[in-house]
Structures are given as structure tokens and as C-alpha cells.
């Protein structure tokens, strides 16, 4: 299992623990990740607000770099849902329109690059749930997360508009993985609801409302698990503001999926950089301690 790896900007900054835990978990599961040399920003949600062509050219630059890497034929693994959609959109659109690919290549020529359309971009959850699979996690299990109740949060852009590996409205791909980790499932219907994305920066009152509804529905779980740095940030960083607005406590542990699965296969909280998360409660760490002594 060899992959090219596109971390994206967040994973070098506010989501460093997502990068560390993805690398640690994937390596422990026997996968080999090679970072795309010279990668740059995919445009995030900012390019689309400014320019149609830039929205396609910024991700295409990275696809062109990936395509040039040897040996060829490796899928591109992307942990961030926004990066994933931006890269995937270029693959999908250029597959059906060679005129568009030519237009993108005219721009890329300014950087001495060209994109042929031979890449395959995959979201981390796609790779973990289908290439690795729950059975492999179960085989590597050394610390069953017994008694820990987990709410799987998928967000939007790994599911929509391109439904590749899961149901885009009622996703379930994390459920077998949570079960394989020995944890319990928190049943809810908020897994594919929007967290507000960058509204938290430009229209905070709107973002707080969406995040509030998700955290409210998560009550009763020990942790929410995410697969996107923006979802993670929105759910973990504004819990105090949500509580102030709604008048109810909504303190909740928010983890990245490879952190949760990494704990189950015996990686240490240090290796998974749990110290970098903004919301890990004492109650959660206590429960985790209990699973460690039981193992």
C-alpha cells in the first residue's frame, strides 16, 4: 500500500496533530506515504470566492507535481476534506472536458508544468475504510476502547458532491472502524450536517448556531471523531462561545479519526499528538486510562 501524500496547509499549522496521527497510524498499518514534492495550497474555499480559473489551476498544479513523481500509479492520499474536493474536482472536470484541461495547462505552463489527467485523489476515510478496512484494524487491536462512546462526524466535502465511498446523506463508513476499535457508537443524525466552514471567521453568529446543534446532538458521547481540519477546529475551538449563547454546557472531546484508531492499535497519546488538540476532557482521558490498564 503505497500512496502519494498531500497534507495541505492546515496540517502544517492548526491541524498538526492530524498530520502526525495520519502518518503514525498509516505507517503502523503498513502503508507507505510519500509527500508530494513542492506542493502548494489547493485554494481552499478562498479561490472559489475570487476566481473560477484559479479554483482549478491551484489544485491542478499539485496534481501535475504528483503525476511527475516516480514510480507512477500511486493514489494521492488527502486527509483534509476541502483539499480533497478541490483536487478531485479538477480530476472529474478535466476527464469530461479536454478543452478545460488545455485551458488549465495554458496557465500551468507559466510554472513549467502540465497535467495529463492520470491521477487518482482519495480521501483518508476512503483509504482507511476500504483499502485498510475494519478487519485490519481489528487484527492490529491491542487496546480495545471499551466503554468509550464515539459520535462519527463526516462533514460535507468528503461526501458531496462526489459520492465515492459512502452514502452522501447518511454516511456509515466510520461505524465498522469504531466497532473494530472496541468503542461504542453514539447513534445520531448529525454526521453529514454542515459545521459552517469558514462562516466561523466571517459570520460567527451563523457558525455558532450550526456548531451548537452538532454539539447538542453529541451529548452522551465521550468523543466526536472528525476527518477534516476545518470541522475539527469549528467543533473544538468555540465550545465556550456556544455554551455562552445557548446557556448549556457542551464540553466535548473532539478527535481526528486516526487519533482514535491509533489509540486502539496501541500508539501512544504522545505519538498521536493528543496534547495539541484543543478539546480533550479530563473525563475522556480518565476513561482512556482505564482501557490502558485493562489491556
Amino acid at each position: 500500500m503505497k500512496y502519494l501524500y498531500y497534507p495541505g496547509c492546515s496540517l502544517e499549522g492548526t491541524a498538526r496533530e492530524y498530520d502526525s496521527s495520519t502518518r503514525a497510524f498509516m505507517t503502523a498499518m503498513g502503508a507507505d506515504l510519500t509527500e508530494i514534492e513542492g506542493w502548494t495550497c489547493c485554494g481552499a474555499s478562498a479561490a472559489e470566492a475570487v476566481s473560477e480559473l484559479l479554483t482549478l489551476v491551484l489544485p491542478a498544479r499539485n496534481l501535475a507535481l504528483a503525476e511527475a513523481m516516480k514510480p507512477s500509479g500511486r493514489d494521492i492520499l488527502v486527509p483534509c476534506s476541502a483539499c480533497y474536493l478541490n483536487l478531485k474536482r479538477v480530476e472529474e472536470k478535466t476527464r469530461v472536458s479536454h478543452a478545460l484541461r488545455d485551458r488549465i495547462n495554458e496557465a500551468l505552463a507559466a510554472d513549467g508544468l502540465a497535467y495529463q489527467g492520470r491521477t487518482r485523489t482519495r480521501h483518508l476515510l476512503d483509504v482507511v475504510s476500504r483499502d485498510l478496512g475494519a478487519a485490519a484494524v481489528a487484527r492490529h487491536l491491542v487496546r480495545p476502547l471499551t466503554g468509550i462512546r464515539v459520535a462519527p462526524y463526516y462533514g460535507c466535502q468528503c461526501l458531496r458532491p462526489y459520492a465515492v465511498f459512502d452514502d452522501p446523506e447518511s454516511p456509515r463508513s466510520m461505524e465498522p472502524l469504531i466497532a473494530a476499535a472496541g468503542a461504542d457508537l453514539h447513534p445520531w443524525t448529525m454526521g453529514a450536517k454542515c459545521c459552517g466552514a469558514s462562516h466561523m471567521n466571517t459570520k460567527m453568529e451563523v457558525g455558532l448556531k450550526l456548531v451548537g446543534a452538532i454539539l447538542e446532538a453529541a451529548r452522551g458521547a465521550d468523543a466526536v471523531v472528525t476527518v477534516c481540519p476545518m470541522c475539527q477546529m469549528n467543533l473544538e475551538a468555540y465550545q465556550r462561545q456556544v455554551a455562552r449563547q445557548s446557556g448549556t454546557d457542551c464540553t466535548m472531546t473532539i478527535l481526528y479519526l486516526p487519533q482514535l484508531l491509533g489509540l486502539a492499535i496501541g500508539l501512544s497519546p504522545e505519538a498521536l499528538r493528543l496534547d495539541l488538540n484543543l478539546a480533550v476532557t479530563g473525563a475522556f482521558l480518565e476513561k482512556l486510562q482505564h482501557t490502558a490498564t485493562a489491556a
Binding site: C156, Q157, P161, A163, P168, E169, C194, H199, K203
Partner: peptide, 11 residues
């Protein structure tokens, strides 16, 4: 400007 690109309407 209030679209957060969740793609639910597109879906």
C-alpha cells in the same frame, strides 16, 4: 455569501 458549500442542495 452565506453558502458554506455543503453541497446538500446540489445533491
Amino acid at each position: 455569501s452565506l453558502c458554506s458549500a455543503c453541497y446538500m442542495c446540489t445533491l
